[in-house]
Amino acid sequence: MIPRKILLTIWVALACTVPWWFFDESTRWFGLPAWVTYAILSAIIYSCMLGLVIQKYWQPEEDAD
């Protein structure tokens, strides 16, 4: 594990799940207000990212041995 690199990745991605950049509901993505679609997609991407981080960086000690 590389805590600093992972910490940064996890926190930046988590902060990005907040729909900071949306101010009106008129823009539509996939039939929903853009900020709603963004919030759903970012939650999905964040979960996938966590799965990938675990896969790549978490090497169980017994495996590493």
Binding site: L7, L14, T17, A43
Partner: peptide, 20 residues
């Protein structure tokens, strides 16, 4: 309404902390 979508990342955040 859709503001409740924050609840999804509330629980995801906990998993992020587990990794650390």
């Amino acid at each position: 309404g859709f503001h409740a979508l924050v609840l999804v990342t509330l629980l995801s955040g906990a998993v992020g902390a587990f990794i650390l």
